[in-house]
Amino acid sequence: MAVLARGAVRRPSRFRYWRRWLTAYLFIAPWLIFLLVFIAGAIVLAVYFSFTDYDLLSDPVFVGLKNYQKAFQDESFLHAIRNVATYTAVVVPSQTFIGLVMAAILDRKIPFRRFFRIAWYLPCVASSVVTTLIFMWLFLPDGFINAALNFVGIDVRINWLGDEATALPSIMFMNIWATAATMMLIFLAAIQDVPGPIYEAANLDGAGPIRQFFQITLPLMRPAIFLVVLLGTIGCFQLYDQVKIATNGGPNEATLTVTYLIWRQGFRDLNMGYASAMGVILFAGIFVISLIQRRVLDVRPDY
């Protein structure tokens, strides 16, 4: 009798348990399928293909670490890494600094704040294709950039994107223009989180707005700065659109980047294995850099 009663109670509860389990998986199933195929599956395939030679026409051939060895002896790949490093070293500090200045200004009670915020943010929302095309036009020898320089007395007719010396700096400028305000928004959210009483205390101590910014706001925003530097670095490592549209890595490989090389090897020259290996190296690079930055910038805020 007791056994029967226990069984009678148990059976529906287990049934209900499985039913709930099933319902939950039905809810996530459509999303999980896409994720398993196009992210999890793709990651496994990327690693697998990086150990093979594969040109789409014949079957992939396992070659061990050959692609990785090839990458580190490939003059173009090393050159691309140097370009990306230079690019990151200029763009990340610039966009961080400008974003910070923008946020600091918008945090003040100045007139037209809402207008400034939206105006500065517009470069971030237009597509990379549109902003790149616009800047290609502005950077022409007969374009507005040279005209503006002539206007202030610098008499030049530089072919900005066509000259080896100025192509990469031009793309740097383009991207700082297009990303600084994204950083501003992150900083703005962080600035507004700084507790008000700290400023009141500083006011009583006679600290001016500039000193308050450097001695209170900035130290308290270390987590936001870390985030901005990290996002900025990841973005810089992936520089692609501007290079693909404006310069195709040229002139003379002056704007060659790792991602452009992945495209060129994979989709122009059909070296799928080699392109995968460069992708894995790119991921490893981003992973290591973000670990180092976490160490260096030490994200805990000290209130």
């Binding site: 195929v37 395939l45 992708g279």
Partner: peptide, 15 residues
């Protein structure tokens, strides 16, 4: 989230 989109270009294209 850490994985850059370009790493998956080749495998996604092959799929």
């Amino acid at each position: 989230i850490m994985i850059p989109g370009q790493v998956l270009w080749v495998p996604k294209f092959l799929i």
